[in-house]
Simulated assay, not measured.
Amino acid sequence: MTLAAAPAVAQKIGVGQTRGGGAPEGPPIVAIHATVEDMATKKEIGIVERGGHFEVQEGQQVRLRLVAEAAGDRRRFPSTRFEVNSESRHIYVDKLNPEVGAVILTGGRPNSRGGAVPVQYEILENLNVGDDLRTGRFYLDIVPQRTQQPRPEPKPEPTPQLGVTLYSDAGYRGASTRFLASDRDLHDDAVGNDRVSSIRVDPGCTVTVFEHPNYGGVASTFTEDVYGMDGTRVGNDAVSSLRLECSTQARRGVTLYSDGYFEGVSAFFSGDVANLGATDFGNDRASSIRVDQGCEVTIFADVEFRGRYATFRDTLPLLNGTPVGNDAVSSLRVRCD
């Protein structure tokens, strides 16, 4: 943008004569102000009242347009002559249009000694306006260009820690303790020793609970929630220590269900199992299978991957009619892409 430098003396801008000489036109003018438009965005950024101040940034180009407020809430945009005093190059006149009462200005150097740049106006049309309003001033305060402060980088949401929660009552009720790591002795935890009746297992976690402290005695391993410990190898009110492993990577595999249509007791398996009788799910118990996307499971009627077998890549709500049959799975192989 080429800026026209203001001369070292006051410059008058506008037509030279007041229009008409007869009776004043229109309803009486009761107030004067100017709208301020940012030329970069073409949006109105404020209003400066007669005798009022408005901030203009160094290098910012604005358009002032005079507005005459008439009685009855009517607006007029009269032809106007402007006079801009700029002896220290704090403001530059870029363009004028006195016919519509507008002038385009650009902020120059801020005044280190303070003080505003006066912009004087004179209404040229023969409006019904008193001498006290026909002429007046607006004041522009030139301020240094604001540099936009960089926005701080948003803090990443903390990754929730995975773990398990042990409960003293079945159905995830009663006293509870959440574990994010293995614990060799539960006697000093809220849930306590020999009191565990249900377990919630976060996705991606595997927990092995033991009958005795220091990971001793009978053990049971779970990858899903356990509504009640009755029927598990460890049993109810018998857990004294636990080992915990969690991974943020989603595990894939298969889930066996003791009843059809994915109901009853369930167990998740991500690898081969040579003998389901050694797991808490048990042997000859599966009635339906859920297979994760990209995985394949082969079920066998006998342990050690022997006997009748069938391979599935899709979820199966009923094992009736398959080569292995219902309540007959004793071992399985799992493969995932």
Rank of each mutant, 00 (worst) to 15 (best):
270 S>V: 00
275 N>Y: 06
62 V>Q: 04
160 P>D: 09
181 A>M: 07
72 G>T: 09
185 D>R: 02
241 S>I: 03
284 D>K: 12
159 T>I: 13
208 T>W: 07
81 R>F: 04
80 T>F: 07
64 L>R: 06
96 L>S: 15
83 E>C: 10
65 R>G: 14
136 G>E: 08
135 T>M: 12
316 L>C: 07
285 R>V: 10
69 E>G: 12
335 R>S: 11
238 A>P: 00
86 S>F: 02
107 G>F: 05
9 V>H: 14
93 V>W: 02
326 N>L: 11
314 D>P: 08
8 A>Y: 09
26 G>L: 03
215 Y>G: 08
19 R>F: 14
138 F>A: 10
23 A>V: 12
257 Y>S: 06
213 P>H: 03
333 R>D: 06
300 F>V: 02
197 S>W: 02
177 T>I: 06
148 Q>A: 15
329 V>K: 01
252 R>K: 14
305 F>H: 15
183 D>Y: 00
126 N>P: 03
232 T>G: 02
101 G>P: 03
83 E>K: 14
141 D>T: 13
55 E>H: 09
192 G>P: 03
74 R>I: 12
118 P>R: 09
34 A>F: 01
41 T>V: 09
271 G>E: 15
330 S>H: 07
232 T>Y: 02
242 L>C: 03
129 V>I: 15
32 I>T: 02
315 T>F: 11
35 T>K: 10
126 N>Q: 11
244 L>A: 02
92 Y>D: 15
6 A>R: 10
8 A>K: 15
152 P>F: 00
187 H>L: 01
106 T>F: 03
13 I>V: 14
87 E>F: 13
124 L>H: 05
240 S>E: 00
134 R>G: 09
123 I>W: 10
279 T>I: 08
289 I>W: 03
319 L>K: 03
178 R>K: 11
76 R>N: 08
302 D>T: 07
17 Q>Y: 10
83 E>Q: 15
109 R>L: 14
253 G>H: 05
184 R>C: 05
178 R>T: 12
306 R>L: 15
31 A>K: 13
287 S>P: 06
221 T>M: 12
335 R>G: 04
112 S>F: 11
11 Q>D: 14
45 I>W: 05
147 T>S: 15
105 L>D: 06
327 D>T: 07
156 P>L: 03
137 R>C: 14
87 E>I: 13
285 R>F: 05
210 F>I: 04
136 G>N: 10
261 Y>W: 04
175 A>D: 11
303 V>S: 12
33 H>A: 09
15 V>G: 13
12 K>N: 13
264 G>S: 02
275 N>C: 10
195 R>D: 04
53 H>E: 14
88 S>H: 13
308 R>S: 10
7 P>H: 07
312 F>D: 06
126 N>T: 08
283 N>W: 09
